[in-house]
Deep mutational scan, measured.
Amino acid sequence: DRHTIHIGDITIHLEGFSEEELKLAEELIKRGIHLEEVKRILEELYR
């Protein structure tokens, strides 16, 4: 499954994450956390 996060003019595609995980990812990215770090956090929390 493919999910999309929109932040301003930026569109990020993250596959294989639930709606809850994507909301967390979006919040972290909006707070300035680097995408690679966001992915690592999600994997630690949900895998």
Rank of each mutant, 00 (worst) to 15 (best):
40 R>S: 04
21 E>A: 15
30 K>A: 14
29 I>E: 01
6 H>E: 10
38 V>T: 01
42 L>I: 13
6 H>D: 08
13 H>K: 11
27 E>H: 12
40 R>I: 05
30 K>E: 05
43 E>M: 02
33 I>Q: 03
46 Y>H: 15
46 Y>C: 15
19 E>I: 11
23 K>S: 10
36 E>K: 05
20 E>S: 12
8 G>F: 02
7 I>F: 11
8 G>W: 02
29 I>V: 13
38 V>M: 07
44 E>H: 01
16 G>H: 07
34 H>R: 08
4 T>N: 08
20 E>K: 10
35 L>K: 04
5 I>K: 04
2 R>L: 11
14 L>V: 11
44 E>F: 03
31 R>M: 09
11 T>A: 05
30 K>N: 14
37 E>W: 08
16 G>T: 10
12 I>K: 08
45 L>M: 12
6 H>C: 04
30 K>F: 06
5 I>L: 01
41 I>L: 09
14 L>R: 02
13 H>S: 14
9 D>L: 09
27 E>V: 10
25 A>R: 02
36 E>T: 08
44 E>S: 00
43 E>W: 03
2 R>C: 14
35 L>Y: 08
28 L>C: 02
42 L>G: 00
12 I>S: 05
46 Y>D: 15
30 K>Q: 09
32 G>M: 12
4 T>F: 00
5 I>P: 06
20 E>A: 06
17 F>H: 05
30 K>W: 04
27 E>A: 14
6 H>L: 04
14 L>W: 09
3 H>W: 01
6 H>M: 06
13 H>A: 09
17 F>W: 08
6 H>T: 14
19 E>V: 12
15 E>D: 13
14 L>E: 01
29 I>D: 00
41 I>G: 00
44 E>T: 01
1 D>M: 01
7 I>M: 13
42 L>K: 00
36 E>P: 08
1 D>K: 06
43 E>F: 01
28 L>N: 00
30 K>R: 14
24 L>D: 02
24 L>I: 11
34 H>M: 10
38 V>D: 00
3 H>C: 04
21 E>I: 15
4 T>E: 12
42 L>N: 00
5 I>A: 03
4 T>K: 10
21 E>G: 15
23 K>V: 12
12 I>H: 06
18 S>Q: 06
31 R>W: 10
13 H>T: 14
7 I>G: 08
41 I>N: 00
45 L>N: 06
35 L>N: 04
20 E>P: 09
43 E>P: 00
44 E>W: 04
34 H>S: 15
18 S>W: 13
3 H>V: 14
12 I>Q: 06
13 H>R: 12
12 I>L: 08
33 I>A: 05
5 I>F: 00
47 R>F: 09
36 E>C: 04
25 A>S: 03
37 E>P: 01
22 L>H: 09
25 A>T: 05
16 G>F: 10
2 R>E: 14
45 L>F: 12
45 L>V: 05
21 E>D: 09
31 R>P: 06
34 H>Y: 03
24 L>T: 11
26 E>G: 05
18 S>F: 08
40 R>V: 04
27 E>W: 03
7 I>T: 06
18 S>Y: 10
27 E>I: 11
35 L>E: 04
26 E>I: 11
23 K>H: 14
47 R>D: 15
21 E>T: 11
27 E>G: 07
31 R>N: 11
30 K>M: 07
23 K>A: 11
26 E>Q: 11
39 K>P: 00
23 K>M: 09
19 E>G: 13
24 L>G: 03
4 T>P: 10
29 I>K: 01
37 E>V: 10
5 I>T: 09
35 L>G: 05
8 G>A: 06
30 K>D: 05
18 S>P: 05
9 D>E: 10
36 E>N: 08
27 E>R: 08
46 Y>E: 15
7 I>R: 04
39 K>H: 05
19 E>D: 15
45 L>A: 12
3 H>F: 02
22 L>C: 13
35 L>V: 09
8 G>Y: 01
7 I>N: 07
28 L>G: 01
32 G>L: 10
36 E>L: 06
44 E>Y: 03
14 L>D: 01
40 R>Y: 02
39 K>N: 04
34 H>V: 12
39 K>T: 05
41 I>E: 02
24 L>H: 14
12 I>P: 04
46 Y>S: 15
1 D>T: 09
5 I>E: 08
14 L>C: 15
3 H>S: 10
33 I>K: 06
13 H>M: 10
14 L>Q: 02
40 R>K: 10
38 V>L: 11
8 G>H: 08
24 L>P: 01
1 D>R: 05
10 I>K: 12
34 H>C: 08
15 E>S: 11
39 K>A: 07
45 L>G: 09
42 L>Q: 00
15 E>A: 14
15 E>N: 14
39 K>Q: 08
31 R>Q: 14
47 R>E: 15
7 I>L: 11
22 L>S: 07
13 H>C: 09
15 E>I: 14
1 D>A: 05
39 K>W: 13
29 I>G: 02
12 I>Y: 02
17 F>A: 08
10 I>T: 12
31 R>D: 05
6 H>S: 10
13 H>L: 09
41 I>W: 08
13 H>I: 14
11 T>C: 00
47 R>M: 14
7 I>W: 05
46 Y>G: 15
7 I>P: 06
42 L>W: 01
35 L>Q: 04
27 E>C: 01
1 D>G: 12
9 D>H: 10
5 I>N: 04
15 E>H: 12
16 G>M: 07
27 E>T: 12
16 G>R: 11
20 E>T: 15
21 E>H: 15
17 F>G: 08
12 I>C: 07
45 L>C: 12
23 K>Q: 12
19 E>Y: 13
9 D>K: 04
32 G>W: 07
18 S>L: 09
37 E>I: 12
36 E>Y: 02
32 G>P: 03
13 H>W: 08
13 H>V: 14
3 H>P: 08
2 R>N: 14
38 V>P: 00
10 I>Q: 11
31 R>H: 08
33 I>G: 02
34 H>T: 15
34 H>G: 14
43 E>V: 01
33 I>E: 03
44 E>I: 03
10 I>S: 07
16 G>A: 10
26 E>P: 01
46 Y>Q: 15
17 F>T: 05
17 F>Y: 14
40 R>L: 08
47 R>I: 15
32 G>N: 07
31 R>A: 12
46 Y>T: 15
33 I>F: 11
34 H>F: 03
38 V>Y: 01
14 L>H: 04
1 D>L: 01
19 E>R: 05
42 L>H: 00
8 G>M: 02
3 H>E: 06
7 I>K: 04
27 E>Q: 07
36 E>Q: 06
23 K>P: 04
19 E>H: 13
32 G>H: 04
22 L>D: 03
31 R>F: 07
